[in-house]
Structure formats: structure tokens, C-alpha cells
């Protein structure tokens, strides 16, 4: 966790310019692994499902997956800068509670409501980023504490579960057209509209540089502070989009600590499975999307294999540990023991 740590994973022996054959980069390989695991798991799910993969089942799976995928994308951005956001779940719940209060009424009112929800998410993220960067505090403890604050505010907005949402909007967000779920399209829209422009922008590339080696990035004149604040701000925005989708799925808002914790935990799992390095500087939000779908398919598989669904935390935990252990297997390949230690 120290800033002076070197990232040995970013450099692979085969990545020399003389090597003409296309080799996937480490982060592309991560995405491919996540896609493969998801495809296999989903195929098994479809095969065991008595009705087969009807449009309805795909739509339900997509809605559940997209909720986590948005939160996981939100988690990815701070992780890329070698940070962490333990408040994504709380922002997700906060925006859910807010959306269940203000995304109502006619089209104009609804549009303003959506804008308000997204703005609140952006503000939450920016506050995190500003405290971390200009307060020079550890991301872990700041987001843990701010998560408590955001959760407290969502309790104030919605002491009891309830509320409502513009029905047409909710229906539109969770329906599918020609067997293509709208929630999947929403994810695509977020990737094309937010992730890719961010990835290609100066500050997006700066985020990778900061995560890879902050000192070197500083020496090269990379705008470290702005890159970090933007990463946390966009993280809040993405979590807010997730909160909006949750409102559309449940037609209500609920301030439950369990939901916030569950999404925070699963988002980190999704990020790891999606091939993003927790030490920063390597990975992609696209991998996290598939990581999220893997995490959610675990739950679906439990149901078709007739395992008690209350055991889901156990399996999610095991998947998480397995993912971490697999990525840790490199310790057995390291020849120089000194490389093990920071």
C-alpha cells in the first residue's frame, strides 16, 4: 500500500516491440478471463434452467447484473488510482432513496429528478475525492466514514422503506426490446458515454499513471490531484446511475445497511474478477462489468442447483477468495524471494 511500491505486473516479458504477434495486455487478458467465466457460468445456468433462457429470464439476470455492474464500475475508477471507495454502496443506497422521492410526476419533473439524483451522486463522489486529495487522508478510512454519513442522510430521506417512482420510466429502464434488455443498453450507454471518453481523456490516462507509480507520475507533470478527484467524482456519478436503476427495479427506496454493505463487498469482488489490479494502474471498467455478472450468476446458480439462497454470502466470499488466490499464484513463480516484499 505504500506509494513507493513498484508495480511489477505491468511489465510482461513478451511486451517488447520486436514481438510482432498480438499478445493481449494483462488487462485485456483479465477481461477475457472474466468473459469466459461468465459465459461458462451463464451457459450452465441456462442449461439447468427448466424453461431455458427465455427473454424474461435474460432480462431479470441483466437487471440484477447491471445494478452490480454500475456499482462495480464506480469502484473501478478509484481502484485504478490505487485507492478504494468503501462508500459506493452507501452512495448507491442514498441515490436510491433520493430517486424514490424526486423521480416522480410528469416528464419535466422526472427529468429534473434524474438530474438531481445524478448531481447528488457526483457531489458525494467529489466530496470523497476532495477530502482524500486535499485533506491528504487515506481513501480507506475517508470513504468508510463518508459512507456512514451518506447512509445517515439516506435514513433521513427515507426512514421507512417506501416511496414511488415514475412508472413509465421505471418500466422502460427494466423492460427488454427484441430480447435485448434495456439495462444492458444502459450499461453500453455508460461505457460509450462515460467510460471510453474518460479512458481516453488526459485525466483518465493520468489516473492510470497515478495508480501505477504516483511519484513518477508527479515527476512527469501529470495532474495527480485533479485526476484523483475526478476518479472519485465519476465513481459517485456511476453509483448514482446504479441507484436510479435500483429504484426502477424495485419501484421504491429503502435505506438498509445490508444493501449498502452487500453492494460494496460485491463491487470489490467484481473488480478483482474483472482483472483490475487492487494495487492500481492496471485494469478496466469493462472487466468489472463482466466481473459483476459473474458475481450475480453465482447467486442464480445456487437457485438452479437447489442450494439454500441464504448461503449466498458463503459462495460470494469463496469466489472472492478464489479470485484473489488465483491472482496471487504468481508468488510461486517468483524466483527472487525479495520481490515478495514491498
Amino acid at each position: 500500500m505504500s506509494a513507493s511500491g513498484t508495480n511489477t505486473k505491468a511489465m510482461e516479458p513478451g511486451d517488447t516491440p520486436t514481438n510482432r504477434r498480438w499478445r493481449p495486455s494483462a488487462s485485456q487478458r483479465g477481461i477475457m478471463i472474466a468473459v469466459t467465466i461468465f459465459a461458462v457460468m451463464f451457459a450452465v445456468y441456462g442449461w439447468k434452467q427448466p424453461m431455458g433462457l427465455t427473454a424474461n429470464i435474460v432480462n431479470t439476470a441483466s437487471n440484477k447484473g447491471a445494478l452490480l455492474a454500475l456499482v462495480a464500475m464506480a469502484q473501478t475508477l478509484p481502484v485504478l488510482t490505487r485507492g478504494l471507495d468503501l462508500s459506493v454502496g452507501a452512495v448507491f443506497v442514498l441515490t436510491n432513496c433520493l430517486a424514490s422521492s424526486i423521480v416522480v410526476g410528469g416528464p419535466v419533473m422526472t427529468a429534473f429528478g434524474i438530474g438531481g439524483v445524478l448531481l447528488v451522486g457526483l457531489i458525494c463522489g467529489t466530496v470523497n475525492g476532495v477530502i482524500i486529495v486535499y485533506g491528504r487522508l487515506q481513501p480507506l478510512i475517508v470513504t468508510l466514514a463518508m459512507g456512514a454519513v451518506y447512509f445517515g442522510i439516506s435514513l433521513a430521506i427515507r426512514p421507512q422503506p417506501g416511496g414511488s417512482v415514475n412508472f413509465e420510466l421505471a418500466d422502460f429502464m427494466t423492460r427488454s426490446t427484441l430480447a435485448i434488455p434495456h439495462s444492458t443498453l444502459l450499461l453500453l450507454l455508460v461505457v460509450v458515454g462515460i467510460w471510453i471518453p474518460y479512458r481516453r481523456s488526459t485525466l483518465g490516462r493520468a489516473a492510470y499513471a497515478v495508480g501505477s507509480n504516483e511519484q513518477a507520475a508527479y515527476m512527469s507533470g501529470v495532474p495527480i490531484d485533479r485526476a484523483k478527484v475526478l476518479a472519485y467524482a465519476l465513481s459517485g456519478l456511476l453509483a448514482a446511475i446504479g441507484g436510479l436503476l435500483l429504484t426502477a427495479v424495485t419501484y421504491s427506496g429503502a435505506a438498509k445497511m445490508a444493501i449498502a454493505n452487500d453492494y460494496t463487498l460485491n463491487s470489490i469482488g467484481a473488480v478483482v474478477i474483472g482483472g483490475t489490479s487492487l494495487f492500481g494502474g492496471m485494469g478496466s471498467a469493462i472487466g468489472s462489468i463482466f466481473g459483476a455478472f459473474v458475481m450475480r450468476t453465482v447467486g442464480d446458480l445456487l437457485i438452479v442447483f437447489d442450494i439454500n439462497p441464504v448461503l449466498q454470502p458463503l459462495f460470494v466470499g469463496i469466489v472472492l477468495l478464489a479470485a484473489v488466490c488465483i491472482s496471487s499464484l504468481r508468488v510461486f513463480r517468483i524466483k527472487n524471494k525479495l520481490d515478495l516484499y514491498r
Partner: peptide
Amino acid sequence: LGVAYLRAPAMIFTLGMNAVAQGLMVWHTG
């Protein structure tokens, strides 16, 4: 063992263990 010998990031490994412990306890009471 995970953190020291597998060199897994403690943050994520212990978070995973938390979920596993939760699952085991739910199983135990269920």
C-alpha cells in the same frame, strides 16, 4: 495465511473471509 504466504491484499482477503464467516454462521443457524 492468505496475506502472509499468498501475498493477497489484506483488505480484499479479509473482506472475503468476512463474507465466508457470515455464510458459515448463516448455515450454522439455518
